[in-house]
Write a protein that binds this DNA or RNA. Sequence first.
RNA 1: GCGGGCGUGAUGGAAUGGUAGACAUACCGGACUUAAAAUCCGGAGGCCUUAGCGCCGUGCGGGUUCAAGUCCCGCCGCCCGCACCA
Length: 855
Amino acid sequence: MSNERYNAKVVEPKWQEAWNAAEVFRAERDEREKYYVLEMFPYPSGRIHMGHVRNYTMGDVVARYKSARGFNVLHPMGWDAFGMPAENAAMEKGVHPGDWTYKNIDDMRAQLKPMGLSIDWSREFATCDPEYYGQQQAMFIDMMEQGLVYRKNAVVNWDPVDMTVLANEQVIDGKGWRSGAVVERKELTQWFFKISEYSEELLAAIDGLKDWPEKVRIMQANWIGKSRGVEIDFDMTEAAYGVEVVTCYSTRPDTLHGASFLAISPDHPLAKALEADREDVAAFNIEARKGGTTEEAMEKAEKLGFDTGLTVHHPAEDRALPVWIGNFVLMEYGTGAVFGCPAHDQRDLDFARKYDLMVRNAFFVPGDDTDVGREALVPEKTLKVSYVNHFAGVTDASAEDAINTTIDWFVAKCKGRETIKYRLRDWGVSRQRYWGCPIPVVHCDSCGVVPEKKENLPVALPKDVSFETPGNPLDRHPTWRDVPCPKCGKPAKRETDTMDTFVDSSWYFARFTAPRAETPTVMADAEYWMNVDQYIGGIEHAILHLLYSRFFARAMHMTGHLPPTATEPFNALFTQGMVTHETYSTPGKDGRPVWRTPDEVRLMEAGAELIATGEAVDVGPVIKMSKSKKNVVDPEDIIDQYGADTARWFVMSDSPPERDVEWTASGAEAAWKHLQRVWRLTDEAVQTVIGQEPSADEALALQKATHRAIQDVTDGIEGFAFNKSVAALYQFTNTVAKSKAGRAAKLSALKTMAQLMQPMTPHLAEEVWAATGGEGLVAQAPWPKVDPALLEDDTVTLPIQINGKRRDEISVSKDLDKAALEALALENAAVQKALNGGSPKKVIVVPGRIINVVV
RNA sequence: GCGGGCGUGAUGGAAUGGUAGACAUACCGGACUUAAAAUCCGGAGGCCUUAGCGCCGUGCGGGUUCAAGUCCCGCCGCCCGCACCA
């Protein structure tokens, strides 16, 4: 016996070279049915992490499996390469964002390749390649022509020191995260995509996304936020500032009887007219507009109101309502004005209590239409029939029916219109930054906004920029910025805004189908490869990235860059869980914990200690691997120590793919031991001297176990339950190890095992395949077929229940019919005892499953 | 507040309404070894002055069913998403 250890360091590069030499993963259009697998492409931070390993291994399992199943598989890889970290690095280290990014891509590719992923690297690109973003600019121009792009003024967070626009998450306590300067709200003219025009379409099409997680579908639907209601006109008792009518939007018009005031936004036209005239209003509005746009700020902000002294008529009753300005009313939603119904809305109640406004019950309680007490009533849980319903003739109904009836009643009786509103806003894509895709337009004094000529694309980023002065370097780059107008040729200026990086990632999946084309896509390629059959990535992209991509697929169809069959980009979506790890810390001087990496810590039976000093270590909760808590394990170290197959096997085992998986040293060790064991079994089988007496029974048993394994591993992969496939392979390995079958039978079992392991541990699989006499590469071998006859045993063990409790079991031939099984069960000693001479009330026989005797 | 999900051994987790705890980790015992590692074999949900053909057991309380971790109703706990959205 050679008892040679499996050496991943030697074996893995060997097979990777063999795959490359045979161009096994090269995807070309052909006669076969296609299958497009895609994992969300990475941002080139410079290092791969365990989350990448898990994400790409899942995709690789699917890709290799589908390939074995006879599909023509497309499995590409690229880089989401524009974005702020490159500019931050430029400012901190003085490197050019492009140099920094391409260096990171090289580093990450070098870390990724040893994983042995079945990727067609010939299709690789980065979104910061001018060949990519130039095509994106072409599409931008096409979208302008289709009316999908427009400019408008929008308020942004402006950092006056860094001279830059900040995203909400970059504003901390009202200050810029980098400069610490107090953030100002500034109005800028910005570019928008008309995604809101697709609100209904994007919402309705969610129903067709059958293979998306329910959770993501709900999140998208909520984000689009469709609501049905009524716009109600409130006539002013006396026109003021030319305003005669204030229109409110309401989804609960049935509470109109409870209306006791109107509240308008400080940005409502009426409020603005008042503020121009009256200093007290102006002062209030300044106060009311303060406060950040973050959730936290909104939560804490106090309700502020200002009584304008103006009044409106109640549309259905003979009384007047005061008009207030309220800081809680958003101009961006509805009409910027609401009627307050304090009796049935906590927010309105708070406001009414503070300013001593009337609280009127809108619901039908005879003899009680005044005050309802401290808490607002919730209509659904109390009374379903509002006064308005009552007037409309509804006596009892669900809240939804009541609202529908009321809307009809309203439109007939009052000045109101049924209205559908969406929460989804247009997508602002302007970023005042350098490291992004330049918006390909020119501003000309004579011609206005002019798109760049397509033959001049790409509008490439200039290389000679400096980040020493704050602000957008494009803005102060005269030779790049000052260009002739594409239309009239007079001196003009380029747009210096670049696009949101979400634009880059909204169509990369389509570009992979023809990555080197001179147009954004090639119709024949898009028709063949689109849609993505299986998309895999993190839940954190459940809304924005996926919604933008869905919008883009439609926009690309409209501009002729995708066929109508590809309006939905991703047929199936899978959102994988995170890789987690325990956290380790030692007490720091200031009482705050000093985080320690797993490398620094020795785990003991109770507790843990620092390897270097023996100092006691606190073992903290298991959380997502993150640099700040130092609970990270570098995939490169694991691959170095154990090989890629071990890392791949570990991240596929134990936890279901949609849940978090905890990385543990013992788990990694176990994965490695298992792979060693498989190799040892193979080696032993190969070294077995022929001439022993093989047992036919043993060979058959092994064959049956093989087919059971084929079935279970297949089910696991098909059901996206890779942990079950792994468990089935463990079980199969145990069976092979214990089997007394002869050499040929064992080699045959191991050869099938190689095929079943191939999606998860491709290198070891090749080695086992070669050793057991497999032809060619197992990566190109077809998936093994199950023989259903071998899944069944001739005898089965059936539990016998008495009154539903298991009391005994019998071993019977699988062919016995119900009557025979019943007879056997009644003869059973335990049953006899329970019957005590009597006869059973009932006997339930489920052949192959169970026998239950009811006494 | 609204919406969604999840509660099973020490741990990660299995289980078309049909033998709960597959598989793995950690643990315990044995073999091999001078010893350790590696490897191999075995044990293991809980309870019991009755060790059995025993009783109990999938967050808690009810229900449906011959049969419930699984279905229904009501609680409790945890996690996630959204939210001055009218």
